[in-house]
Write a protein that binds this DNA or RNA. Structure first.
Lengths: 356, 356
DNA sequence: TAAAAATACTCCATAGGTATTTTAT
DNA sequence: ATAAAATACCTATGGAGTATTTTTA
């Protein structure tokens, strides 16, 4: 009996889907189906009630699932402990990130990480904030990447970044001539914003209120991509975290303006369950993320948290912020090279934890 | 990665031998070797230091073994819980019995059990008493069968039987004419006995002393088979538990005589670790063992513990005691038949827990 | 030298893929 | 009608056996 079948079963159950689970493990839907059927054959029981869609767990399935979930994570922990002796990094990291975490950033770190630790199965999913918290709650991911982290008692919060909030304006907008604005300039503008369900919207509302600025919210979206598209077609302007505008500024489809007299930031943080000790693979990923942020800060000549200290930079700072990522690549690449050398000294072929 | 490989690895470690472990799992030595090597390949580590004989665990191997041992028993427990829903009995029972537990008895129950629960992997080993306790201590067996159970605080003691002690005499011995003896008749006899390391020897010594009978111990052995052989060739007589003489009396190579004025018994008990809750397979086995004893008692017209109540039977009681087993067969067979029917109603092929 | 484990080589079972059918909404 | 899961079928991998070599005490 393959332990992998048990893993697949658990994934099938948590995802309530064979195909989704199959995807996670990089196998065909057929394989996932067969894996579960094999378990059922071995136990001579039916674990899932397939007469419903989505399927339901049978009593046996419930017991099996509850038991095996723990078991598998225990097993992973043992394997991790063994690997630590040889300073090897293997295992699995599942990351649940909010949509608006700058993809290029995270993906760049991920690429570097995969190169540095090819034996780690790294999986990143971009989800709605509430789903990210769900995933963490259900122990279905090792790390969560969120903005405005809620300080729930059972999550460990690791601050990662403070993203400056800048003004996004469409090309051709009167503001385009300027490189920075005052908050009062925003008064009376047509705004594209986030839906009130999102924390960032509530923060922005609060900030504007504090500055006695009133805007007219013409459109609301629950994700940053739609906001940007709407700004691009001239529906209005918006307040957005600088890094989320990187691509649009580079391609010249949007203009970003710094606010001179506001120190508004979107805090980004890494979350993980307090109960579960992070395996070394995950620890390394966190370190790499933090390192990439420090490198960015260094390159742009300020600490990531400079704003909280009130230092105000002059000139086209918003622009500089958006170019931060340029510095990441060499740093990550170096880390990757070093680690690969280390591995090469000891071994040629390294079996992957989850694919063998 | 097969979970079975982990099981094999653990067995290899506890037995400190690939071949022994292979035997336990009913596979070739080669397979056991390959199983461990596969784990090592997956972990990309060496778990065993094979440059020593017997091999030693590496640091990694130690960690892996310690972790997996628990894990596997947890996994078994989960599977057992799942099976209990369908009233199915699967799993593994490893029994460590002392040499002198009447083989025919235990083996008959085992045969009936295997028929009743074909999906249980039942393994019985006959060992020196001290090794039985070791096995229990190391959690390397589910049940121990011993005589004169030590009441260690971490073992649960289930009394199973009280075997009457009878006098074994060779054919042609003066006692052969008689059907029973008095204790005083033993005075001055040449005796074949157990080595003083065995509890039964110390008990017999004590009994004889209490009756002011002195014998001359001419030979000592640490197992009952040698004692019997020595009595057969006329070296002397002996005091032995009645059931151990069954075969010899039937084949007429030895004579067994009851003692009229002594109520000497060898208590047989089942032991198991208090920590570990018995799985249902093991519980059933215990029940079947107890049932077989009750059936014997019924057939021979007395309760197994009758002697403790002082009832003395007349006539060739020793003979009757030795025929007890005759009644076991039908009872066990019936139980087997019933259970097979039950299973047949639900399923045709049942995968074995440990062989799939 | 003897016993135990590793290895070479082989065969067969089966895991898992693709393509298709079945099933539940 | 559609999306998802089960199934049929096929292939390639690898699990496990026998026979042999290697290794350690």
């Amino acid at each position: 009996m393959h332990l992998r079948n048990v893993e697949i079963f658990c994934e099938v159950v948590t995802r309530r889907s064979f195909s989704k689970a199959a995807e996670v493990f990089g196998v065909s839907q057929s394989a996932a189906s067969q894996a579960v059927m094999q378990l059922e054959k071995r136990l001579n029981t039916t674990l899932l009630d397939r007469s419903k869609r989505p399927f339901e767990l049978t009593q046996a399935g419930e017991i099996y699932y509850q038991g095996c979930r723990d078991l598998i994570s225990q097993f992973r922990e043992i394997e991790d402990r063994v690997q630590q002796i040889g300073n090897k990094v293997t295992g699995r990291i599942r990351i649940a990130a909010i949509y608006s975490v700058v993809l290029s950033d995270l993906e760049q770190v991920a690429r570097a990480y995969r190169q540095a630790y090819p034996d780690v199965h790294l999986n990143i999913e971009y989800l709605h904030p509430s789903v990210v918290y769900e995933r963490l709650d259900e122990d279905e991911c090792e790390l969560g990447l969120v903005s405005f982290p809620e300080r729930a008692s059972d999550f460990q919060v690791i601050p990662l970044d403070q993203e400056p909030i800048v003004v996004a304006v469409p090309m051709g907008h009167p503001f385009c001539d300027r490189t920075s604005l005052q908050v009062k300039d925003l008064d009376g503008q047509r705004f594209i914003g986030f839906s009130t369900a999102l924390r960032i919207r509530r923060e922005i509302d609060r900030w504007l209120r504090q500055h006695n600025v009133s805007i007219s919210m013409v459109h609301e979206f629950d994700n940053v991509e739609n906001v940007k598209r709407d700004v691009e077609i001239g529906s209005g302007i918006s307040l957005l975290p600088a890094p989320t505008l990187k691509r649009e500024v580079q391609t010249g489809t949007l203009h970003a303006l710094q606010l001179e007299d506001a120190h508004w930031f979107r805090p980004i943080a890494i979350l993980h369950r307090k109960g579960r000790t992070l395996n070394s693979a995950t620890t390394r990923f966190v370190e790499m993320l933090q390192a990439s942020k420090s490198a960015q800060a260094l390159a742009s000549g300020h600490s990531p948290s400079f704003a909280t200290h009130g230092t105000i930079q002059a000139g086209s700072q918003a622009q500089a912020m958006m170019d931060q990522n340029a510095s990441l690549k060499p740093v990550a690449a170096k880390a990757a090279a070093r680690s690969l050398e280390e591995d090469a000294e000891k071994t040629v072929s390294v079996a992957s934890l989850t694919t063998t």
